[in-house]
Design a protein around this nucleic acid. Structure first.
Lengths: 146, 146
DNA sequence: TCTTGACCTAAAGTTAGATTTAGGTATTAC
DNA sequence: GTAATACCTAAATCTAACTTTAGGTCAAGA
């Protein structure tokens, strides 16, 4: 079963030029062409693209994803390198999640701040900081302010 | 209490040119200068920078952060707009966290895959997919494959 | 006095990740 | 036979967010 670039584009909601660009950057291994030169993607490329999307989300650059693909193409002897790359990426993404959770705390504080400012006015909310905050809000406030 | 650009730079681990760039882009309200033209930051700018860092993490562009700062400068009448911006940002960051958690599932699968491939060889691991995976791994595999 | 360090500006350069443009081929539908 | 559709390439352009460069001011210390 093979897929055209248009089918891949729909499957992953990525533009056709983006897929060509990924190909040019060396992200697809063993990407064959049909008689007229059109790319023929298959299940391996579908899986590759799943991994690419996930590595991109976790903050890896395209050139580093390419390096990973090169390791894949070298076969069994690079299994340990690849494992180590994913272990690094795991740590990386875990710390990204923590960072976002901190940002979320600040945002929750600001949501409370503006909801209260709508009712009482900004001056009054400011006067509540930091001692007269509701317990819940005091918590997130302290997490985000030293 | 005021701070020089160098002090702010250390406080937030941002380069001095970056702080000047943020200033040029209009991210700092009421940023005064001393007699020789040096920027004089104060507590308001410290708090602004905390918010800027957090909005940047949550994916907002500098021009949108600027728009928010413009709302702040318009005072009480924009409180509702600002509240709505933070509510949107809250949703946004929550979905970013979910996305990262999905990516993490894929990465956990790949960590298992390569750990097992180290022991048994890649061919053997591939043969275990999808029916003979350990329960835990089958779980994350299924979450990331259709 | 002079030099060191911290600041300033405007403008050019950089990088990643695409997107756009311009021109061309191959297949199918009418 | 021609028009629409889906693909192709190479090269130029774009955007965001900085960073670098080049040249200058100002105050303190040796």
């Amino acid at each position: 079963m093979t897929y055209t670039i248009g089918e891949m584009s729909k499957m992953f909601a990525l533009s056709i030029p983006t897929l060509r660009y990924y190909d040019k950057e060396g992200l697809f291994l063993d990407l064959d062409r049909d008689a007229s030169g059109n790319r023929l993607f298959d299940e391996r490329h579908v899986e590759a693209l799943r991994v690419i999307e996930c590595l991109k989300k976790s903050g890896l650059q395209i050139k580093d994803i390419k390096k990973f693909m090169e390791l894949v193409s070298l076969g069994q002897e690079t299994v340990t390198d690849r494992k180590e790359m994913f272990l690094r990426q795991k740590k990386d993404i875990e710390s990204k999640i923590l960072e976002l959770e901190n940002a979320l705390d600040m945002i929750k504080f600001k949501c409370w701040y503006y909801e209260t400012a709508e009712k009482l006015g900004e001056k009054e909310v400011k006067a509540m900081i930091p001692d007269e905050l509701p317990r819940e809000i005091k918590n997130v406030y302290e997490k985000t302010h030293i």
